[in-house]
């Protein structure tokens, strides 16, 4: 499925602000893996997702999806394989366009765009059905501008858009972090539902330890641009927050520090 081999990235190389963001990442995901990603400040979680998505070029290493080496593909070309939801609810949708227009744009992810109509009549009922499943009442507001939606609604819509065209891998970069707890819970439920339904291979960064343990079948912990802990299956199910904190101290020799991390049990 996804294979990351010894990927390195340094920002601002040879300047006073040099920052080694990724220090040799190796990761192999299997079809249908749902991986939660945790780690301290500046551990390289977001950078890893951005490297997979192609936001910046990598310095060295190799990224493959289904055997295709995408290491040197530009971002827009990788989009055919990848669905993404960002932390900022404003980033995943076009505020000045209608809900259905946004969905039509997303529905064509990875396909050639030509002079055919940007949205066909026949698609609309499909979008309506999909929106109904979100249970947010958006199915009756298809011609509303997305800018009128709340952050949670926009995030749910972005999630739906990322999966309208089944992605080979879904990247969720703390997509509930900017939402209030109740909305975050709802969006997380929708996430599990969609991922389960389509059996999507997913990577989800979260700052909630409990979510990281409860959701998905695999968990990785990052520190200083490396994956320091990788656990899956039965073993993961029995994990406790304390175990994670201890693991972190063992592997890094430091205390866990992330000013946003929720350590609650």
């Amino acid at each position: 499925m996804l294979e990351i081999k010894n990927v390195k990235k340094t920002f601002n190389k040879n300047t006073i602000n040099e920052k080694k963001a990724l220090n040799g990442i190796n990761l192999q995901l299997n079809e249908g893996d749902f991986v939660t990603v945790i780690g301290g400040n500046g551990a390289g979680k977001s950078t890893t997702l951005n490297m997979i998505a192609g936001v910046y070029p990598i310095d060295s290493g190799r990224i493959e999806i289904d055997g295709v080496n995408i290491s040197r593909y530009p971002e827009y070309k990788r989009a055919q394989y990848i669905g993404r939801v960002f932390q900022d609810p404003m980033m995943g949708t076009a505020a000045g366009m209608e809900i259905q227009e946004n969905m039509a744009l997303a529905y064509r992810r990875g396909k050639g765009r030509g002079l055919a109509w940007g949205i066909r009549q026949s698609e609309k009922s499909y979008y309506q059905e999909a929106l109904k499943k979100l249970d947010l009442g958006l199915e009756n507001r298809m011609t509303n501008k997305v800018g009128l939606l709340s952050g949670g609604q926009r995030q749910a819509l972005t999630l739906l858009m990322a999966t309208l065209q089944k992605p080979k891998i879904l990247l969720l970069d703390e997509h509930t972090a900017a939402l209030d707890p109740k909305t975050a819970k709802k969006v997380l439920e929708i996430t599990e539902e969609i991922v389960g339904e389509q059996n999507l291979t997913t990577m989800m960064i979260t700052h909630n330890m409990k979510d990281a343990i409860q959701i998905g079948n695999r968990l990785i912990m990052m520190h200083e641009g490396k994956i320091i802990y990788d656990i899956s299956g039965e073993e993961k199910n029995h994990l406790e927050v304390e175990d994670l904190l201890r693991k972190f101290e063992e592997a890094s020799g430091e205390e866990f520090s992330n000013d946003r991390m929720i350590l609650a049990k």
Partner: peptide, 25 residues
């Protein structure tokens, strides 16, 4: 109203999103 045209309108709205949806902005 076409596929290219909507992608163009979206580019003015939110470039990052349009790239994430596979359009060369």
């Amino acid at each position: 109203g076409t596929e290219i045209g909507s992608a163009m309108r979206a580019t003015g709205n939110n470039e990052a999103m349009v790239r994430a949806l596979g359009v060369n902005t």
